[in-house]
């Protein structure tokens, strides 16, 4: 039943799939970011309390949500790599980690820049902020572990184990605002009784989340292609790709 999936475990096929998917994500990312940033910065109404400072939400929330989403997908690919011994999944873990780290850093920086005018401080050791910082360190740990081993097989296994163990942090981040009494506000969009945000702000936010996700997908696919090429550079198909010129993107 799952036989149709098997060819995708081959490096060459996976490389081609990356090439096929990338333009679609790229188009949505570019259009979405232009529309989302313009709408968020210039057309969405100012908040009645926070005025124009709340416009940071249009990058803070997408980066925060997606840094957690990227970590979850990294943990899932790590699980696949460990259980079914699929090397492309291992390469995907290595491709996602730097992108996730960058996005987690964006979430922390934009949070600090929002915290300063609203809370009066760049940083507090609040539950939400601390668990997000741990998420950034987990990403950096996965990258560092991979580069610490000379043998890439052992390096991949070590990173996969860290990626899987670290996933317990994701639900902790999500519930941190409920479990502990924190300075960070609770969830606004993902509430069971509907969003507590007006649609004039919700729509540009959703567009920004979608665009941000697509941009991350583009960068992850680029990095996955690089990882595949690096591991397979002595194989004939890579040589054909380089010398053939036709498919050499």
């Amino acid at each position: 039943m799952w036989k149709w999936l098997h060819p995708y475990a081959k490096a060459e096929k996976a490389y081609q799939v990356c090439n096929t998917l990338m333009p679609y994500f790229a188009v949505v990312a570019v259009i979405g970011l232009i529309v989302g940033w313009t709408w968020g910065l210039a057309y969405a109404p100012a908040d009645y309390q926070q005025k124009d400072s709340y416009r940071i939400i249009f990058i803070h929330v997408p980066s925060a949500i997606l840094s957690m989403g990227a970590y979850t997908s990294m943990a899932i690919t790590a699980f696949i790599a460990m259980v079914w011994q699929i090397r492309n999944a291992e390469l995907a873990v290595i491709a996602i980690a730097p992108v996730g780290a960058a996005v987690a850093a964006i979430a922390l920086i934009t949070g600090a820049a929002w915290g300063k005018p609203m809370w009066g401080t760049w940083w507090v050791w609040d539950a939400r902020l601390t668990t997000m910082l741990i998420l950034l360190f987990l990403y950096i740990g996965v990258i560092a572990l991979y580069h610490a081993f000379e043998d890439k097989g052992a390096a991949g296994r070590a990173s996969c184990i860290l990626a899987m163990v670290g996933v317990v942090n994701v639900p902790i981040i999500h519930y941190s605002v409920e479990w502990w009494n924190t300075l960070h506000q609770g969830s606004t969009i993902t509430k069971f009784d509907g969003s507590a945000i007006d649609s004039s702000m919700l729509y540009p936010l959703l567009i920004n989340i979608l665009a941000f996700a697509c941009l991350m997908a583009v960068i992850v696919l680029m990095r996955l292609k690089n990882e595949i090429l690096e591991r397979e550079k002595h194989r004939p198909w890579v040589r054909n790709l380089v010398s053939g010129g036709k498919n050499a993107v």
Partner: peptide, 10 residues
């Protein structure tokens, strides 16, 4: 300053 710092860093 804060808004452009955020968008710039991003």
């Amino acid at each position: 300053f804060y808004v452009w710092l955020s968008y710039g860093a991003c």
